[in-house]
Design a protein around this nucleic acid. Sequence first.
DNA 1: AAGGCGTGGTG
DNA 2: TCACCAAGCCT
Length: 355
Amino acid sequence: MGGFYNDILEWYDRHRRVLPWRAEAGKKPDSYHVWLSEIMLQQTVVAAVIPYFQKFVDKWPTIHDLADADPDALMAAWAGLGYYARARNLHKAAKMISDTYSGIFPDTEQALKKLPGIGDYTSAAIIAIAHDKPAVVIDGNVERVMSRFFVIESQMPAAKAEIRRYAVQIYDPAHNRRPGDLAQAIMDLGAGICTPQSPSCGNCPVQSRCRIILEAASPEEYPRKAIKKTKKQRRGYIYHIETEAGEVLLEKRAEKGLLGGMTGFPTSEWVTGSSYPDHPGWLEGLSPAPIKNVLIKHVFTHFELSMKACRLRVADKDSIRNLPATYIWRSKSAVIDRKNDFPTIFRKFVPFINS
DNA sequence: AAGGCGTGGTG
DNA sequence: TCACCAAGCCT
């Protein structure tokens, strides 16, 4: 393992990327920055995270500022980044760190994993990167690098146990003198060289030791994965409802579940299959009219959604009886001005509320 | 423990 | 253009 360790760190020192949350070489990073970036980086590429990270640090420079943040402002700032449970958990964890830890991040994996949104990977990453202590940091990049370097034939996710056994050797504290750099080096290698498709093996610092190269196998076929299921289709309606005074109806979604805690345009239920659902009960007796040729399509991780757009003009707010308290009115100008407070699915509809 | 959970970078 | 899938966590 010594050869791998030295080669990859030598490569890292030459190719180290400058990132907003990364300290200068040899300096200790801000734990708050490390944690915030790691949460944002969960299932999300670096390029997408950078502007959000900058915005959060500008708005909330310390963990205490984030703990004191207005929840709706925090969710609005996260809008567009996806996986909104991360934002809800971020705020909960910030309060816990600010209050019970006085703003000092715990330095054991066990304590970190008690914080919402921090699991096996993120706790190890914080130990290694923020505290520069040895930890077995395994993310998708590390899994890919290990599965190729050691030619692991078992299929994911079952292969995780075997991958971990190799990773434990790689991260062995007996030789790991630069825990933070080593973890980031392997992840950077996975993100930039040992990529999922068409990896640049010719530029790899450990190509001469990599078993998949030695065996002339196909790296892009590793890690072995199960065949993916096709996404199901769901259908529904999205509504532009506006008063004569120019107020637009919005819906604050439930805290749990899809788009939890986010505000968007009202929708019907979304039903699986090729048929469309009924309009929601609070629209009883009012007949929203189809907006010709406007279909909002959106792809989620586990289904594809098509929503037919409908419009309803009402005299005033009282025109809709039995409207649940989770629905709110906002001026059309504010809706357009604050477009980016919406998740992407609802941003797509904003251009259509002007006619 | 398998499935829910978003979005945009990438080739 | 479009399929793939990412620095995972939670239940």
